[in-house]
Design a protein around this nucleic acid. Structure first.
Length: 826
DNA sequence: CTAACCTGGATTTTT
DNA sequence: TCCAGGTTAG
């Protein structure tokens, strides 16, 4: 990739030597004052004069957004208008023109993925200078960085622990119980969410609304919040909200420190500004605002039409009032779309126009191709048929050489995924589920991490309690409660308490011995921390603690997978310098990599699809109650509906060339079959860009009016065997087995399931199989055979039709599967 | 300490 | 309906 930087001098070093740790670096000098050579500056000026390459590919609006470096800028970037490109090029431009050093740019994103991508792209533009951009990251990771430098100012020490949601809930539960409250009546989870909500709004315990405070635990809400914060302080820990709030407190209380950062950050950039919550907004204003007369070089990029996180505290208002907050702001709209066909844009644009209170953008494209299809709306009888039909559509595209990687199924709610997964397993179509439970959230990983945490931070009581009796050491509730009381009474961490208490005779000999072993183990590991390679130490910890053995002795089906995950955990540590470094990474970056070498259909929620694009997008489940979701309507009213509509807009605009929308007439919700109405959003699509699919072929039975089927029409589809009451019952009977292999449903495991470990499993295309079966080729199986299926386990063949086997699985009940997916059990 | 049993909840999710 | 999480019985 060519760029304009090949011949531009690029500086990634700060002119002044690093300040010793502990004292925050004061503002670096400007580049001009920083001893940068005259020749270099001249070259930079020369290159600026002849408009460097990196600017030449931009359209006028993009270019304006890149080049308007001084003063506040709001870039309203519609879907697919080159938002990331503008951001990265803008940074490159600031650097290339010598306006600032990399370390003087504060660039904030929401997700680690976005941050990574930006680093990568800037790296491409400027050639490997990314290391020099220490302040490019998520709100939270930058928050951590600030906090580690100034922890004392908010009453923490700089090696504080970051708690994730799970830890927080456990902690809150303890607090609720300690207050003598019934933790069933007042669920910790709910209170954790309340605290999170308050923190999103930037509220200290003293500031929360009286009503909120009363709403929980007989009016003890505020009290509990205070108790929680105190407990965090004792533990030397932060939750995610604190990573934003502590810096805010710190800056407010220490204007001199804030001033240092004002001098440091010459340019501030924010991605996805429509998703900022109040706390982030406060944080940003503190850092970006300048005294009157000093230019505020802040650039926020966002799209009000893609604001879909209102439910977790995002304030679209932030983007709507940008001009008020930063007077003299220049607002630049990017409306030229480089992603989608005119039909897709037309459909999306018409839909989103139904929202009020938008800043108002209309995407357009020059790319007009008569071959481009309209957005297609399909109807199906129920979700099973929906999945089947989507599967067929995908296979058809696959036959036309379209890679599966270019296709995605975007659902409103994750329960919808299951039906697609089931279907794709049957078809042998590779798929990958994006989102869902993450690698680092798995039980075994969290346990292992707790060991590591406790070694690095002996005061981490949550980690201690998690693993003190895992594997089982005979340290039951009684012992732990004893220990807990002992620690509380002396105000010392539990591990330290354990070390003390084994010197006394407070415990029974058995427990005392067990605890003694634990304490000795941790002492030994701590002593090894500095001088042993961290991956080696990690392995040693897991082995010596008996944790590995615990899973080796476990005969359950998941155990081997868990051991594999532990190995993977150790492997992923290799990339880090130390165990501490690794822990920090994990607490902030909870995502696992997906295998991009695999050609697979992506299945994900609409929320996790934001920012992505695919040639072909399938949008199932457009029914009232599901999409727009009933709860969004009930709880959010009109605003809720509009957010749902934006979600629909996000969905459609993910598509580059093909967009298929589906709705079903019947859906099972909480186990009950309900007949459903097509989504109101379907009526909001323009007929000029949308067509309604004619009757679906093979499983057919639809009239030509899917919107208004008569009762008679609805009966038709039942004629295929999959819809017979018997098959339905068989489906209903599927009991336990279904999730077993799916317990580890993300990244690796799922990807493995779709296509099997035993090499490239037959990628079955139904058409071929049907053809095969009509030649009445004798099946390699016969009725009664004992067979094994990757997902369903062992079973006996009940009947055979061509290549379709009906099998009574031991655990999964009766299923129909294609013979390519079973082996003779051996 | 495990397994059977019961209960409640069932959008969206990052950090 | 179907899961997770907790409780209880053995």
């Amino acid at each position: 990739m060519s760029n304009g930087f090949d011949d531009i001098p690029f500086f990634d070093e700060e002119p002044a030597p690093r300040k010793p740790a502990g004292s925050p670096a004061t503002a670096a000098g400007t580049p001009a004052a920083g001893g940068l050579g005259i020749a270099a500056r001249a070259m930079a000026a020369r290159d600026q004069a002849r408009a460097p390459d990196y600017l030449s590919g931009l359209n006028p609006e993009q270019r304006e957004a890149v080049e308007t470096i001084d003063g506040p800028v709001l870039v309203l970037a519609g879907a697919g208008t080159g938002k990331t490109r503008v951001l990265t090029t803008r940074i490159a431009h600031i650097l290339a023109t010598g306006k600032a050093f990399p370390s003087q740019i504060l660039a904030v994103t929401f997700t680690n993925k976005a941050a990574r991508e930006m680093k990568e792209r800037i790296g491409h533009l400027v050639g490997g200078a990314v290391e020099g951009m220490p302040w490019l990251g998520t709100f939270h990771s930058i928050g951590v960085k600030l906090l580690r430098r100034h922890a004392e100012l908010v009453g923490l020490s700089s090696d504080f622990t970051i708690l994730d949601t799970d830890d927080v809930v456990r902690l809150i539960k303890q607090i609720i119980q300690a207050e003598g409250l019934d933790d069933k009546r007042w669920p910790a989870k709910q209170f954790a969410q309340m605290i999170d909500g308050w923190k999103n709004k930037g509220l200290d315990p003293a500031q929360i609304p009286e009503g909120d405070a009363r709403a929980f635990a007989n009016g003890k809400g505020r009290e509990l919040y205070i108790a929680y914060q105190n407990r965090l302080k004792t533990l030397n820990a932060c939750d995610f909200g604190d990573l934003l709030l502590h810096p805010i407190r710190m800056f407010k209380a220490n204007p001199d420190v804030l001033k240092e950062y004002h001098q440091r950050f010459k340019y501030v950039l924010v991605d996805e500004y429509q998703d900022t919550n109040t706390a982030q907004y406060m944080w940003l204003r503190l850092l970006a605002q300048r005294p009157p007369g000093v230019p505020q070089n802040v650039c926020c990029v966002g799209d009000d039409d893609q604001s879909i996180y209102g439910w977790r505290g995002a304030e679209v208002d932030n983007i709507l009032r940008f001009e008020k907050d930063f007077p003299g702001a220049k607002v630049i709209k990017l409306e030229r779309n480089y992603r989608s066909t005119e039909h897709i844009l037309g459909a999306a644009g018409h839909l989103i126009a139904h929202n009020e209170g938008r800043l108002g953008k209309t995407l357009f494209t020059d790319r007009v191709d008569p071959n481009d299809g309209k957005v297609v709306v399909h109807a199906a009888w129920d979700s099973e048929e929906e999945a089947r039909a989507v599967g067929e559509e995908i296979e058809q595209l696959q036959r036309q050489q379209h890679p599966l990687n270019n296709m995605a199924i975007l659902v409103r709610a994750s329960f919808q995924m299951r039906e697609f997964e089931d279907r794709f397993v049957t078809l042998g179509l590779n798929y990958r589920v994006i989102g869902g439970p993450r690698f680092y959230e798995r039980l075994e990983i969290r346990d292992a991490m707790a060991y590591f945490r406790l070694v690095c931070q002996p005061a981490d009581d949550l980690a201690f309690e998690r693993i003190v009796n895992t594997p089982k050491r005979g340290l039951g509730d009684t012992t732990i409660r004893n220990l807990h009381d002992y620690a509380r009474a002396r105000d010392i961490p539990m591990l330290a308490a354990a070390a003390d208490i084994i010197e006394t005779d407070e415990l029974k000999p058995k427990a005392r011995k067990a605890l003694f072993d634990v304490v000795t183990d941790f002492r030994r590991w701590q002593s090894l921390l500095e001088n042993t390679p961290h991956t080696e130490l990690a392995e040693q910890i897991l082995d010596e603690s008996g944790y590995t053995a615990m899973w080796q002795n476990d005969k359950s089906a998941e155990a081997p997978g868990r051991l594999e995950n532990l190995k993977e955990l150790i492997r992923s540590m290799e990339a880090f310098e130390s165990m501490r470094g690794f822990l920090e990474h994990v607490s902030l970056v909870m995502d696992a990599e997906t295998n991009e070498n695999l050609d697979a259909v992506s299945i994900m929620t609409l929320h996790s699809a934001k920012g992505l694009e695919f040639e072909t997008v399938f949008l199932p489940g457009w029914e009232e109650g599901l999409f727009p979701h009933q709860r969004a309507l009930d709880e959010g009213g009109r605003a809720g509906l509009e957010e749902e509509r934006r979600l629909a807009y996000v969905g459609i605009t993910r598509a580059k060339r093909r967009c298929h929308i589906w709705f079903v007439s019947n859906r099972r919700i909480h186990g009950l079959w309900q007949s459903t109405m097509p989504s109101r959003f379907l009526d909001e699509l323009p007929s000029a860009h949308v067509e309604v699919a004619e009757a679906e072929t093979s499983y057919g039975g639809y009239g030509r009016n899917p919107y208004g089927q008569s009762r008679f029409d609805k009966q038709e589809p039942f004629q295929n065997s999959y819809s017979t009451p018997g098959w339905k019952r068989a489906q209903a009977n599927k009991t336990d087995a279904t999730r077993d292999n799916w317990g580890t449903r993300s990244g690796h495991a799922v990807e493995r399931i779709g296509y099997g470990e035993s090499g490239p499993r037959a990628k079955t295309i139904e058409g071929e199989l049907v053809a095969k079966s009509t030649t009445s080729e004798p099946s390699r199986f016969s009725v009664g055979d004992r067979v094994f299926h990757l997902k369903f386990g062992n079973g006996n063949i009940a009947s055979i039709e061509g290549n379709k086997l009906t099998i009574d699985f031991d655990r999964a009940g009766q299923k129909r599967v294609l013979d390519g997916f079973v082996e003779k059990a051996g």
